[in-house]
Amino acid sequence: MRLTKLGHACVQITRDDRTILIDPGTFSEASGALATADAVLITHEHFDHFDADALRAAMAARPALEVWTSRAVAGNLADLGGRVHQVGHGDAVTIAGFDVHVYGEDHELMHPDLPPVPNVGFLVDGEVFHPGDALTVPSEPVPTLCLPGNAPWMRALDLYTYTREVRPERAFAIHDGLLNDIGLSVMERVLTSAGEELGREFRRLTPGTSVELATK
């Protein structure tokens, strides 16, 4: 299995001749990947994870392309009919040949007076977990965690706490598109420290970088 970061929160997962794309938002570099993906997974409705115009264009050009997502995004794309699949916490589905387990219900709180938007995380083939904008802890082991590295709703303490709860074998930072070079260097120091405390490999992938994952 190959995991490729395509910018900010977007990752591409490839196994054999199958590819899925998770969260190709407006901060990602996903136009080429949208043109070749077998399926697209969207964790929630925020623009840095869900580029409605780009996704609609890709689906218009490729009638076989389908989407799995939260109820809010599914509602936004309701006019596309059966090509859009709403999923929620506890679902287990097969998507383009991948076994996908869905975990989580809500985005982390952004405002004290506003309810969170729906957010679902995806565990792919029992190997890679993308939580979206939530610190969801799946009820099964997570070998590889796509770890939010920075967000308006996140503190360094959250990164340490979350990785201690999930205890992945490896973690690769995503959700870092708001940081300049100074911010990235600070985030990477925190990330490295959190990994060292658990004796694990935690690091940031730069956009366009891939890692090969040895799966069972």
Rank of each mutant, 00 (worst) to 15 (best):
M1A: 14
K5N: 10
L6H: 00
C10G: 11
Q12Y: 04
Q12G: 10
Q12R: 14
T14G: 08
T14C: 11
T14D: 15
R18I: 10
R18Q: 14
I20A: 07
I22H: 02
D23S: 15
P24N: 02
G25H: 00
S28K: 04
G32M: 06
L34K: 11
A35K: 09
A35M: 07
A35C: 07
T36G: 12
A37E: 05
E45A: 13
H46W: 05
H46T: 10
D48H: 08
D48M: 08
H49A: 13
D53Y: 08
A54Q: 15
A54R: 14
L55P: 10
R56E: 15
M59R: 08
A60L: 11
A61G: 15
A61T: 05
R62G: 01
R62L: 01
P63E: 12
L65W: 06
S70H: 08
R71Q: 12
A72K: 10
V73Y: 03
A74Y: 05
G75A: 09
G75I: 07
G82I: 10
H85I: 05
T94M: 07
T94Y: 03
G97K: 07
V102C: 02
H111G: 02
D113V: 05
L114H: 04
P115R: 15
P116L: 02
V117C: 06
V120N: 04
F122I: 10
L123I: 00
L123W: 00
L123H: 00
G126H: 01
G126I: 01
E127A: 12
E127L: 14
F129H: 06
H130N: 11
P131L: 11
D133Y: 13
D133M: 13
L135M: 13
V137Y: 07
S139I: 01
E140N: 03
E140R: 09
E140W: 03
P143L: 02
P143C: 10
T144C: 10
L145C: 04
C146H: 01
M154E: 06
R155I: 06
L159D: 03
L159T: 13
Y160C: 03
Y160N: 03
Y160K: 04
Y162L: 02
V166W: 13
R167H: 14
R167G: 09
P168C: 00
R170P: 00
A171C: 06
F172D: 08
A173N: 07
I174F: 02
G177D: 09
L178Q: 14
D181H: 13
D181Q: 15
I182G: 03
I182W: 03
G183V: 05
L184F: 05
R189F: 06
R189W: 08
T192M: 09
A194K: 04
G195E: 13
E196V: 05
E196N: 13
E197S: 13
R200H: 14
F202M: 03
R204P: 11
T206G: 07
P207Y: 06
G208I: 10
G208Y: 08
S210V: 01
V211Y: 03
V211I: 15
V211R: 04
E212F: 05
E212M: 08
K216H: 10
